[in-house]
Design a protein around this nucleic acid. Structure first.
Lengths: 206, 206
DNA sequence: TTATCATTCAAACGCTCGTTTGGTTATTGC
DNA sequence: GCAATAACCAAACGAGCGTTTGAATGATAA
């Protein structure tokens, strides 16, 4: 992760992902972070300006790709006329599943995402909403087309719940320790399947 | 909440619940907390010994009752021979639902619970496991009796997921603002129903 | 080689944190 | 009424925080 052939910026981002996942944003100090990344304390402010902006960059690095994958998948689904609610859900969920299975930081990042979800941090929410809100809007429009009877507010709120459920399913938060890594992939895939069925039923409700 | 006829300890616990829910455990400072509770800064250490122990007490105040209600409901279910998986799940979920609807702090506390879940705090997890782990054990035994083919580790892990899903469903975390309070009760009840169906299917899987 | 610019570094800044202290004020039990 | 005890309070302590500074070092290009 922090091998010397990675640049200072990359080592900081890697250590940040790790420590944010483990200790939260406020709980991870720049001193521990820079010591983990084997860089000088001042390097964070030199390369990223501030800790807050470092947090933003940690998200940007992963969410740019995740958002693009989701929108690509959505476009592919919408190209076929008989697209189902489940197909749209899969377009949203499968890219996150892939990210959670990526061993070079992505699996750590999904836990950072879960942190962000729980922390209710106003500054961070604003950043995410301003930069990635359009993805949710696209999906909302797609769901809305399939569920014309649902009013917009109700729809948005249900999508929000699905995003939350997905986030936590992928982050694998929980009190009890998991068995070894043996079936992690299969398990996550099954969780995604369950989630799609559950979410489709939830969207169709009423 | 912090009316003068509440004792100092109660005012501290109330403010702690509120601020822990809003800012997390690390994010809520004793200075803001004691100022919200209208007590002296030193009062927390005087009455609770430390901030860590205050966190414990915030949980104890609510979890003692929640655990008792869950175990009572479980006992009632087990008394009838034709108890279903859904009945056991309801014994676990409905007391949490009631708590989330309680306007005198319980609804705030479910958000604190969600925080604890996300924070992965080792000290707190130990405290919760040592003091309330037996409740999960009781339910695990009840589920196990209904699902004899499932090995113990897999079972524990699924229960853990259900607890997590429940926690977040009750905490109502999410990016998008909810409509006014109008149908909050009905909505939560419906979420509980969905959760029971979802969890039962998850437990029966494979 | 030398001037230029980006990067790294040790040290310090101002601030907030949880906690402790020692004295003051209320309350309790006889 | 008067000790004894509990509760409250202002002030300070030491530690850790994010950030800034200014000098040292490295790379780049003329």
């Amino acid at each position: 992760m922090n091998s010397p052939h990675f640049s200072t910026k990359e080592r900081i981002l890697g250590a940040a992902e790790e420590l944010f996942a483990r200790n939260g944003f406020a709980g991870a100090s720049l001193r521990e972070l820079t010591s983990t990344a084997k860089v000088n304390l001042a390097a964070v402010n030199y390369h990223f300006g501030s800790k807050d902006n470092l947090v933003n960059e940690v998200f940007r690095r992963r969410l740019d790709e995740l958002s693009a994958q989701r929108l690509d998948a959505l476009k592919a689904v919408q190209a076929s006329p008989e697209a189902s609610l489940e197909d749209i859900l899969a377009a949203f969920i499968h890219p996150a599943l892939l990210l959670s299975l990526d061993k070079s930081g992505g699996n750590t990042f999904v836990r950072v995402l879960a942190r962000a979800y729980a922390e209710h941090n106003e500054r961070l929410r604003k950043y995410l909403s301003e930069n990635y809100g359009y993805v949710l809007k696209e999906f909302a429009a797609a769901f809305g087309a399939q569920l014309p009877h649902l009013d917009k507010e109700e729809l948005y709120w249900r999508i929000d719940i699905i995003a939350g459920a997905l986030t936590y399913a992928m982050a694998d938060f929980g009190v009890i320790k998991r068995r070894a890594a043996m079936s992690e992939k299969i398990h996550r895939e099954r969780a995604a399947e369950h989630l799609i069925r559950f979410a489709a039923a939830g969207l169709r409700a009423e």
